[in-house]
Amino acid sequence: MSNTFIIMALPNALSEIFQCIDQKQDEFIERFNEAISVSANAEKSQDTTGVIEWVDKLLKSLGFFTELKNVEVVKLDGAIHSTSVIFGSSAAGHCPNKSTILIYCHFGFTGIQKEDELGNHLQNNNFYGNGILDLSSIIAWLNTIEVFETSKIDKPVNIKFIISPKETESNTGLSNLLISEKDCFLESKECPPGERNMAVMKK
C-alpha cells in the first residue's frame, strides 16, 4: 500500500514573511550583536539606562508609542535607586476587531567579559554571555514586528509591550506599577499575557 503525500503551497503572506526574514538575516544578527554590546557596557556601571534607551528607540522606529515609567528598586545592601520600565503600544491605535496580547520581557546584563569589538560576541555562529536568552526574546519580538511592517502585512492582533530590567521583578515597585495601570494601560479585558510574564502578571 503506497502512501500519498499532498504538498500544499504556502499562503502568499507566509511566503513573503519567510523571504523577508532571509533577506534581513544579517541585519538581525548585527542588531543582536549591538544589543549585547549595549548591555555589556551597561554592566560595568550597573546602569540599565543605555539598554532601556536603545530598546525604546527601536520600538519607536517600529511604530510604537512608548512611555518610560519610573520604578524604585531596593538592592540587597538596602540601597534604593530608580530605573525605568518601558510601556509600549501601537501608535496606530487599538483595533477593536482584534485581540490584544501583552508581551512582557525582561533583560539582565549579558556579562560579556571580553573587551573586544562587537563581532567577538559571536563565535562559531553562536552568541555567548549571561542573560543572552532574555535579551534575545526582546530582539526576536521586535524583529518579528519589523518583518510584518516591511512586508506590509497586517498584524493579526494588537500588541502591547512591558519591558523591564530583571532586577525589578524581585521588588514591589514593578507590582505596584502594574496595579496602578490596571485601568489604563492594562485595561484590555482580552489582553492575555505573552512571553515569560505569567508570574509577574499574577502579582
Rank of each mutant, 00 (worst) to 15 (best):
S2I: 07
S2W: 05
I6N: 12
I6M: 11
I7G: 04
A13D: 15
E16A: 06
F18P: 03
C20V: 11
C20Q: 14
I21V: 10
D22E: 14
K24G: 00
R31C: 00
F32G: 01
E34D: 12
A35W: 06
I36E: 04
S37A: 14
V38S: 05
S39M: 02
A40M: 11
E43I: 01
E43Y: 06
S45V: 10
T48L: 04
W54H: 13
D56G: 04
K57V: 09
L58S: 09
L58Y: 13
L59V: 07
K60D: 12
L62R: 10
G63E: 11
F64V: 00
F65Q: 12
V73I: 07
K75M: 11
G78Y: 05
A79N: 11
A79D: 10
A79E: 12
I80P: 01
S82W: 05
S89L: 06
S89I: 01
S90R: 12
A91C: 04
G93A: 02
P96V: 06
P96G: 03
S99R: 15
T100C: 08
I101K: 14
I101G: 13
I103T: 06
F107R: 04
G108D: 12
G111T: 07
I112F: 05
I112G: 08
E117V: 11
L118K: 15
G119A: 02
N124A: 15
N130D: 13
S136E: 00
A140L: 08
N143Q: 09
T144S: 15
I145T: 00
V147P: 01
K152E: 11
K152P: 05
K155A: 04
K155V: 13
I162E: 03
I162Y: 05
I162V: 12
S164E: 07
T168K: 01
T168S: 03
S170H: 13
N171G: 03
T172M: 09
T172W: 06
T172H: 10
G173N: 06
L174M: 14
L174Q: 10
N176Y: 04
L177G: 02
I179K: 15
D183P: 00
C184S: 13
E187L: 06
S188D: 15
E190F: 07
C191W: 12
G194D: 13
E195W: 01
E195C: 09
M198E: 15
K202N: 10
